[in-house]
């Protein structure tokens, strides 16, 4: 079924893209409920986080269990800068990305030679360390109370207040993040990273600078997560350390794996479904988490590679093109 769906997706790629883009732009005008808009905004933000994690986990093949740490670092940076120092939105966004990137660099150094589960534990522990610091460094982060009343996002003196405005901001950020990640995947660097994922030793032997590209991938990935964090803190205007726990890291990773590692479309899909699902399951009240867990297990059993993990869109595209060509040729004869 997924294969059929994917073929269909590829066949009508152009039309679908235009429709999706139109829908995305018109969405806030179709649904005006603040609740729906908030969920939509969170969906887009999680999409952005998943796209950024996908670069590290899917493309580079380093399964990070600590992505929420970068997100949190970005959020705290932006909150502190804009609240205590009155920075404007764009500057805070850039700085949040830079600081998160620096931490990414810091993390990438010890994990450079660690593989598999050692990488996993270090990222997990990293997330925990960051959270402990967020909780304890009272003078900077206001500890467990969190930072409240963070100024709203403002561009050149215009303060954004409506949900609609935030929807467009995150839509733009998501588009930018997707563009960056796609560009990277389809560049020389992307192929190098893919080669490293498949076989680090062989890639090194082929003359690929393993160290450099690994660091690049991790830093870019964490920068994007930091930018998402900046958006988050300016949007909700309240953050506390409990927003950025290991459980959240796991959630983001689950979204990526659910959609399919290394697949941007899958990440979108996973983030959207798994953000909406808990809201839909609200009716189950205390059984909500239980049902969520059970669904996760069932879905993994049905699609062990994630929904779109085993789908090669490029291959489908080529096959379709070939069929078309063949059909066209037949027509000529």
């Amino acid at each position: 079924m997924i294969e059929k769906l994917s073929t269909w997706l590829v066949r009508y790629k152009r039309t679908l893209l235009i429709i999706t883009a139109l829908l995305a732009v018109l969405f806030p005008w179709i649904f005006s409920s603040k609740y729906v808009l908030r969920i939509a905004i969170l969906c887009l933000m999680y999409c952005m986080l998943c796209v950024s994690l996908n670069l590290m986990a899917g493309v580079l093949g380093q399964i990070s269990f600590g992505h929420a740490a970068f997100w949190g670092i970005g959020a705290y940076t932006a909150a502190i800068l804009s609240k205590n120092y009155g920075w404007n939105g764009i500057a805070a966004l850039l700085m949040a990305a830079v600081i998160a990137g620096l931490f990414g660099l810091l993390l990438s150094l010890p994990v450079m030679h660690l593989k598999g589960y050692y990488f996993t534990i270090v990222t997990m522990v990293f997330c925990q360390i960051i959270r402990v610091i967020e909780i304890n460094w009272m003078s900077l982060t206001n500890g467990p109370l969190g930072i409240m009343a963070i100024p709203k996002l403002s561009f050149f003196g215009v303060t954004l207040k409506s949900q609609r405005a935030y929807f467009y901001v995150i839509l733009f950020l998501l588009a930018a993040a997707t563009f960056i990640v796609r560009k990277i995947i389809h560049s020389r660097m992307g192929y190098a990273i893919l080669a490293i994922r498949d076989d680090e030793l062989a890639a090194g032997a082929m003359g690929i600078h393993v160290f450099k590209y690994k660091v690049y991938a991790i830093v870019i990935s964490s920068m994007l997560a930091g930018a998402a964090g900046c958006f988050y803190s300016l949007y909700t205007s309240y953050i506390d350390p409990s927003c950025f726990t290991n459980a959240i890291s796991n959630n983001i990773l689950v979204m990526v794996i659910f959609g399919g590692l290394g697949n941007i479309f899958g990440s979108f899909f996973g983030a959207t479904v798994l953000t909406i699902l808990p809201e839909v399951l609200r009716g189950f009240s205390e059984y909500r988490q239980l049902v969520y867990g059970a669904l996760l297990v069932v879905l993994m059993l049905v699609r062990p590679d994630g929904l779109f993990g085993s789908v090669n869109f490029k291959y489908i595209e080529q096959r379709l093109a070939w069929k078309k060509e063949k059909a066209g040729g037949d027509g000529h004869e």
Partner: peptide
């Protein structure tokens, strides 16, 4: 299935057991 799906499965299982 890849090892990762096993990991997600145990994560889901642990959610089920914990919440139960």
């Amino acid at each position: 299935a890849p090892k990762l799906s096993g990991l997600i499965t145990t994560l889901g299982m642990s959610m089920v057991v914990d919440n139960a």
